[in-house]
């Protein structure tokens, strides 16, 4: 059982412990407490449902970052066949924070790319906590070009706190690497699906996230800035990250209302980390459906729709010239 309990899970954990104790007691004695156990189990289920359907954004942030949550390679192992990882940007090095390669999925060859976080400190150091350098984005673009050449669909899995803020990253053009990916992905001549599986951290996430279909897992987050970063700037206090999480509209449920993502993929009750196989099955089902829907369009139409989709994101007011002049007259009257 996982040892990383989140604070809001405690009531459930306690109830589950109680059930466990009762069970042990029943098996060791002659008393039949089956009915009591059953009642408690029902109660636990109800409690779980109640807690997990009313999660605050800050709680989803915790779930999205849960170390036991399945990461990119877990999904690849669970739902894709014959994966071969392809390495390196051919210019500088191989960024371990982004993995990519070819596999069979739904009876066709697919290129899959994703940020790779670790499940423990050792792995996280190896993967730089899923924070890519420019060479990671350049490797991703190189692989997408390969997919384009053979018309393989591209699936990207997003799970990063952000692009790495470091000296080498800046020296090698972190901003340029991300910008180029945004531009090149916008016209890539094959179908692109992005799924946020955990943490969608800002430009570092979007750098592999321009797609025909953008999906998010139920407890994933996608944000312009980390709640901690936002709190440090706007509240001048990192401890206000909870407030910032509430304000940023970073949950899948909020973002789909902004029409920035296309679909929220459900997770097992209690979160993806509770049942890797189940969440992977749900992910596979959604990816297959979206891939087959995209098959009904020509490549040209796919690229055109991708452009249109991004072209229309944004909300603003446009005051007409008349409105301005009316306001001017009113000001004049007041004088």
């Amino acid at each position: 059982m996982s040892t990383n309990h989140l604070d809001f899970e405690l009531p459930i954990i306690e109830l589950e412990k109680k059930i466990e104790e009762l069970r042990r007691f029943t098996s060791n004695s002659r008393m039949d407490l089956c009915r009591e156990v059953e009642a408690l189990e029902k109660k636990a289920e109800r409690l779980k449902r109640e807690i997990f359907t009313n999660l605050a954004p800050r709680q989803r942030v915790q779930l999205a970052r849960h170390p036991q949550r399945p990461h990119t390679l877990d999904y690849i192992n669970l739902i894709m066949d014959g994966f071969y990882e392809l390495h390196g940007d051919r210019m500088f090095s191989d960024d371990r924070a982004i993995v990519g390669g070819l596999c069979k999925f739904n009876d066709e060859t697919v290129l899959v790319i994703g940020h790779q976080k670790g499940s423990n400190i050792q792995e996280n150091i190896e993967r730089n906590f899923g924070m890519p350098h420019p060479e990671g984005y350049r490797k991703a673009l190189r692989l997408m070009r390969l997919a384009e050449k053979f018309n393989f669909p591209v699936i990207t899995l997003i799970d990063t706190p952000g692009a790495y803020p470091g000296i080498g990253a800046e020296e090698r053009g972190q901003a340029e690497a991300i910008a180029r990916n945004l531009m090149e992905m916008s016209t890539l001549k094959t179908s692109l699906i992005s799924l946020v599986i955990g943490e969608g951290g800002s430009g570092g996430a979007l750098g592999i996230g321009v797609a025909d279909r953008t999906l998010m897992l139920e407890n994933a987050i996608y944000s312009v800035i980390s709640p901690e970063g936002c709190a440090a700037i706007l509240w001048r206090d990192k401890r206000k990250a909870g407030e910032a999480a509430d304000a940023l509209c970073l949950t899948a449920q909020d973002i789909i209302k902004l029409r920035i993502i296309d679909e929220v993929v459900p997770e097992p009750l209690g979160g993806a980390h509770k049942n890797h196989e189940q969440v992977a099955t749900l992910v596979a089902e959604s990816l297959k459906r979206n891939l087959s829907e995209l098959k009904s369009f020509s490549i040209k139409e796919i690229v055109r729709r991708r452009f249109e989709k991004h072209r229309h994101i944004g909300e603003f007011l446009e005051l007409r010239e008349e409105a301005i002049s009316v306001r001017g007259t009113e000001d004049g009257d007041e004088k």
Binding site: A179, L182, S186, G203, V210, Y222, V224, F307, G314
Partner: peptide, 25 residues
Amino acid sequence: GARMQEGMLSLMQMAKTSSVIAKLN
């Protein structure tokens, strides 16, 4: 950079402006 007070709408302006540059090219 991207204006945090408009959340994901701001982040997606990066994709929007970059794709129109692709068109320009």
